[in-house]
């Protein structure tokens, strides 16, 4: 299922302290974390975001700590997906496990302009910049990753699996 959203571009090596500084780690509430999303990059950054928007990042997005609060803060801010040149390994896992979609596009990330509207079709692996007409093709999101996104993360996914087997509380 494709969706559209407005682009907010960020640079390379955006680390987990930029995404959610340690002083905000006093909660695990997604919405509260979202209010401080990118606070370590630029105070008040999140004010520009509307529900369904998309972050477009340069290389190695999410490097640093293994805190699961980082993808939660992005989800809490209302971001639908992050399109990036590349992602740090632990952040990549944590994002999908928390239910945040990541799309790795390499150098083609340069084709996307800040403030444009993107149309993303994850199951076909197509990303379109509707303002400048650029099209990026990547391998389709794997079924496992799509399932994690659909279920809202790993905890819900496992809970559902257990319910189907009649093993959950």
């Amino acid at each position: 299922m494709s969706f559209t959203g407005k682009v907010h571009k960020v640079g390379a090596h955006i680390d987990t302290d930029a995404i959610i500084p340690a002083r905000f780690l006093v909660t695990t509430d997604t919405r509260k974390l979202g209010e401080a999303c990118m606070e370590g990059l630029e105070p008040g950054w999140v004010k520009r975001v509307h529900e369904g928007d998309i972050i477009v990042a340069d290389r190695n997005f999410g490097c640093g700590s293994s805190r699961e609060h980082a993808p939660l803060a992005i989800i809490g801010a209302g971001i639908r997906a992050v399109v990036g040149h590349s992602f740090a390994r632990i952040f990549y896992r944590n994002a999908f496990n928390m239910g945040l979609m990541l799309l790795e596009v390499g150098d083609e990330v340069k084709k996307i302009n800040d403030g444009d509207t993107l149309e993303i079709s994850p199951e076909h692996g197509i990303i379109r910049d509707l303002d400048n007409g650029a099209e990026i093709r990547i391998p389709p999101l794997s079924p496992m990753m799509q399932t994690l996104i659909d279920k809202g993360g790993m905890v819900n996914y496992v809970r559902e699996q257990l319910k189907m087997r009649g093993e959950a509380e």
């Binding site: 632990i90 905890v155 996914y157 496992v158 257990l162």
Partner: peptide
């Protein structure tokens, strides 16, 4: 090495991506 949610999933299902 992985984070706590991955480990919990592994403990429950014995499977992981």
């Amino acid at each position: 090495g992985l984070g706590s949610t991955d480990i919990a999933c592994g403990m429950v299902l014995g499977r992981l991506w």
